[in-house]
Design a protein around this nucleic acid. Structure first.
Lengths: 218, 218
DNA sequence: CTCATGTCACGTACACCGTACGTATCGATG
DNA sequence: CATCGATACGTACGGTGTACGTGACATGAG
């Protein structure tokens, strides 16, 4: 009657279980004990497949980084970078906990590959070294920073609603803020500040690349 | 011989002590026990002045938010917003731990005031409601997001150096990344992507405000 | 002066955390 | 059969945030 073979623990099984928990309840509700219980295993068994909790989280981040879309080779560089940027944002929205740890640790292969892809696109634009550097940081910081901010705004305190905040504020000191919060409470078809800034950056880089390429600077 | 009067515990004294610890060792090395020890007090005594650890951190953030420079009234709106943005970044660089918790919780009075100031400047630019909304998010997300990213890059793993990272990477898979890391190891006079993007945003908003103001939209 | 009341410092205790370490089980190989 | 390596597991340690009860003390009322 050995019909109840438990499928053996693997790094992949652990990471996937952790992803499921984090997507549902946030990264902070992962503890080695609860995770092991969810996997129907002893707490310390996990350590046969994972060095420690930090590396588990690294592995989780790498796992979702692998799902970010890359442009096919030969694509227009601006479209290519834009695709990576938008896809990164989409993926991070799907895993809201991830952006909090994304930049806190050294990248793994998947994230290096992503960075390589962006640099590759920028290089094909013909930007000089210093502007490639500028462009990479502008794009990366925008994507991760902006996404983090919008996620924090949504999720910062689960129970509270925007209109409750407005009600607690002193109308004399914060008239504009109250207007702004009310504006958000009604849901206007709002401009997307993520794409707004992203395209500002890309268009400007494009302009600088053309100026540099034709040698007619200034 | 009552010369050893211990100065009484106050919220202010606790917050300042916590700030000193956080600035030196990071937010994670603050625990209620170590903090109390640093103040030469019992752990639970702190709770007479502070509801819980989260509110202590809120108070710390508010304390440093108060040090951000605001424009004097009547200033040019673009310069005004720029000043707040730059000063916010400077202050966050002075307290690197703060940006990690900045957006994670609901703002207090100081941060509402800051938001009010930005909205006030944008309003004086004559932008319509939807563009004010766009501008606020573009600016706020840029300032906090970008600053968080640059701080994370610097501080993510204290021991490691850039050139060590480059040495570990596969030269065939990550040629651009390795170049980029090497480029950073030599210290070039690098463009400031923070100001680059900030000015892109402000100039564009300015352009839209003018178009809107003169009624000659497209 | 006496006593009540409120404020604040402190110690203890609890539940939970990550994980070092020792041990037991089991399949593969000699 | 004996051995060995990989894996699962239990126990235990030092850390965390904080609920709760106690006791010192200052202040004000009678």
């Amino acid at each position: 009657m050995a019909s109840e073979q438990k499928s053996p623990l693997t790094q992949k099984r652990i990471v996937h279980a952790a992803l499921a928990v984090a997507d549902r309840d946030g990264i902070h509700s992962i503890s080695m004990r609860t995770l092991a219980t969810a996997l129907d295993a002893g707490t310390m068994s996990l350590y046969n497949h994972i060095r420690n909790k930090d590396e588990l989280i690294d592995a989780m981040v790498e796992d979702i980084a692998a799902t970010i879309e890359r442009p096919e080779p030969g694509a227009d560089w601006k479209q290519g970078v834009r695709q990576i940027a938008v896809s990164t944002r989409t993926v991070l929205h799907r895993h809201p906990w991830a952006v909090e740890v994304w930049s806190a640790r050294i990248p793994g292969p998947q994230r290096w590959t992503l960075m390589e892809a962006i640099l590759d696109q920028l290089a094909s634009a013909g930007l000089p070294d210093d502007l490639t550097d500028l462009g990479l940081h502008a794009v990366l910081n925008h994507v991760l920073g902006h996404t983090r901010q919008e996620l924090a705004a949504v999720r910062s305190n689960p129970g509270t609603h925007v209109q409750d905040l407005a009600a607690e504020l002193d109308a004399e000191r914060f008239p504009h803020v109250i207007d702004h919060l009310r504006y958000h409470a009604e849901d206007h078809p709002t401009h997307d500040s993520f794409l707004f800034v992203l395209d500002l950056i890309l268009d400007r880089l494009d302009g600088m690349a053309r100026r540099h390429g034709t040698g007619t600077a200034h």
